[in-house]
Design a binder for these strands. Structure first.
Lengths: 418, 418
DNA sequence: TAAGTTTGTGCGAAGTACAAACAAACTGAT
DNA sequence: ATCAGTTTGTTTGTACTTCGCACAAACTTA
């Protein structure tokens, strides 16, 4: 039998700019080998522990639909290694039987280093495998200052934190504001902190501390934090949305963090919701960020003649509305509606059905979330049996981001998710 | 050691509507078993053949980075089964060596049934595993007519096609316009064909033909068609965009078709790009569809006093612009710019970097695509080394959709992609 | 004709998941 | 107090898959 070299009906025309994308002959096929299989399953068992808390071997086996012996085989080496520990026996639910020995992360196991990097301020801490935050250290830096000065500050701050670990942590995770190239570990640009522009922070810290270092942008850390111990726990699909001085987001899709090429997915602030809208600092008009972040809120508050418009927040509006202020209520309604438009677009695009709010809008608590939800419900094209959940993470922004930063290490270094 | 039942810092508050999503205790963890591993790898080898055309065992092994014997082990049973065939020996590139025996899909292997269902018309055909279209049959139906009449027509049409297969096909794939619940195989609603509303077509045809049947919405079939033998071939990440009477899209993300919950992802037509824009038939204002589909184009053509505005198409505008018409050029520019806004939003959200155009806009050929690309480039927040490709599929819409419909069967039935 | 190269195939080793059987630990009825 | 019943976790052997090595087959080049 004779084959044409390529089927002849591949007639699609490509614009000139995609030579290498056409290559195809790269490593785009990867078979799963026997050894990676073990690694995958190990990761999934850990994931099950994160999602469900301490569980016995038998419970884990039921949860994962595998044989009990398989779980034993996976779990035993990790116990011997000191990563996991067996807890006290817990009498079984009813009707007797041998008591179960729940398994969870060893408090004595190595921890994770976490860094939260926002314009002007740094927070570093250690995070245990069970999500506890320790050795929190804070520092400030001049966002317009000298790069070496900044590097000294961040190294010193991290050193103070890491010194409190009783053994070397698994690695260091960084959550940073701005535009991040997470593949190459470079901060591409942070509008409010020019000193960070183009900084290859991962390389620098990796060399300095001799530890694995990963970086990702702030909303994605919030997402991981949500997934780990927040409202995203156990969910397979949801998004995290952050509003503040800027607006950003991140997605958890089918059980994994979505990054996009070079980690550039989720730059939602600059999706357009009003083609001929206000000029955005990105040069476009009518970006979502121009109508659903703090600058808009301040501007509108000022226009309405509200008191102290420069310090208005969603929290204040919720309080004002609850106290009967029509102005606050009206502005809150418009604000939440504007937030809803971006979520609506996301919903129509990806149909994630679940959204966790962070930042200023989360400051508005359940009230604000419920208003957003109602706006989304009203706007979205409903399907049968489709319910959309809008949630706020009540843990507190900083902690979620730090936990998330630590979680980034887990998912990259421990290959927790395939 | 004693564990708290759940870590106490899980304080996230959830809106009331997510009881079951919170459950977590379901089958959300799945370990990969030994036998599924084989299935996965078998699927990936097939995928490699689709992506790269006929290849020898040795080449496949190099492509996938695995041992040659592994490929033999995977491929041999499929050859014996008649799914694949060994081609004539091809002398190796240079420097001698034993000639390679390329392997590809057996033309005698079972084919795939494909149905394209658009308001008022049906196309059915058989598709070989190497993508050839056979036994194409067409029929029409009354979109506002009787349901039983419609069912008779589609069954008859499919029967005519299937009768020409020399053996039972693997299954039947349906690409349908409108809103589809691909999980349950139900057509939820087609604006222009009320007869289809709520029709459980998968169940009906599955019973009638005793074959596996899958359905998905039209843009997703285009996507699969693109991936199979169009511009998306070998790509790991891209989107298909369809513009016509309506506007829709679908995504291929990290090597798999993205569906979203109940297959409701990609309803891009009703993402909002102009909050206070024109009223859309969905009830919202300023949906992308209101500014980037044929109804807008006709309306604007009429407003400009263009001749025969009711038959204007992108193709005609491109022709007019090439012939020096300023009116055509101007309208084409606005049209492509409007299309670009939706792509821009997608790019900011998912960063797919590659988009394949279909439908009316694809009728404008490379010229239209290039205009769209330039608008997107101008609008998007550039990152270093990021190139955005906008492509049209030149094969012809119907064929791509039919191949895609067939491809749907492959990906679901043969588990071609995990 | 011989050396070199590449392809495809046996064969045994290693790693993983699974099924069956069993000891351990607990409950509850007799 | 004893025994049946239940659940947990382990032991043992089996099945499946990939990998490395060795080798025959087929071709080119000197």
């Amino acid at each position: 039998m004779k084959f044409g070299n390529q089927p002849s009906y591949s007639l699609g025309q490509r614009s000139a700019s995609t030579k290498e994308a056409l290559a195809g002959e790269g490593g785009n096929v990867t078979l799963v080998s026997q050894s990676t299989l073990g690694e995958i399953n190990r990761g999934r068992v850990l994931q099950a522990l994160y999602d469900n808390g301490p569980k016995s071997r038998a419970e884990l086996a039921r949860l994962a639909g595998v044989n009990r012996t398989t779980i034993t085989g996976i779990v035993q080496p990790m116990i011997e290694e000191g990563l996991l520990v067996e807890g006290d026996a817990v009498p079984s639910d009813f009707k007797g039987g041998k008591p179960a020995r729940p398994i969870y992360f060893n408090p004595e196991a190595p921890m994770l280093g976490a860094v939260l990097l926002l314009p002007g301020r740094i927070q570093t801490c250690l995070v245990t495998l069970s999500g506890e935050i320790k050795a929190l250290t804070k520092a400030e830096f001049d966002p317009h200052g000298d790069r070496d000065m900044f590097l000294t500050i961040i190294k010193d701050t991290l050193s103070v934190t890491l010194a409190q670990a009783h053994q070397a942590p698994f690695g260091i995770g960084i959550a940073s504001g701005g535009m991040i190239d997470s593949d190459n570990g470079v901060i591409l640009a942070v509008n409010l902190a020019p000193v960070l522009t183009g900084l290859p922070l991962v390389d620098i810290l990796q060399k300095h501390f001799s530890l694995p270092v990963v970086i990702d942008h702030h909303p994605r850390a919030l997402l991981v934090g949500d997934r780990w111990f927040g409202p995203g726990r156990g969910q397979q699909t949801f998004a995290a949305i952050y509003t503040g001085e800027v607006l950003g987001g991140a997605f958890y899709i089918d059980g994994r963090v979505y990054r996009g090429l070079a980690g550039s997915g989720g730059e939602l602030g600059h999706t357009v919701v009003q083609i001929d809208g206000e000029l955005c600092n990105c040069g476009k008009h009518g970006c979502w960020e121009t109508v659903a972040a703090l600058p808009w809120l301040r501007r509108e508050a000022a226009r309405q003649g509200m008191e102290n418009p420069e310090t208005v927040t969603c929290a204040r509006l919720v309080k004002g509305a609850a106290e009967g202020s029509e102005a606050a209520d009206g502005l809150l309604d418009r604000y939440t509606r504007n937030v809803a438009f971006g979520i609506l677009n996301l919903q129509q695009t990806l149909s994630l059905n679940s959204y966790v709010l962070h930042g200023d809008i989360a400051g508005g608590g359940v009230d604000a979330a419920e208003r957003v939800r109602q706006h989304v419900e009203r706007l979205v094209r409903k399907r049968p049996n489709q319910e959309i959940s809008i949630t706020v993470n009540g843990i507190g922004e900083g902690h979620t981001a730090l936990r998330g930063a630590a979680g980034l290490v887990l998912s990259s270094h421990l290959k927790l998710v395939i």
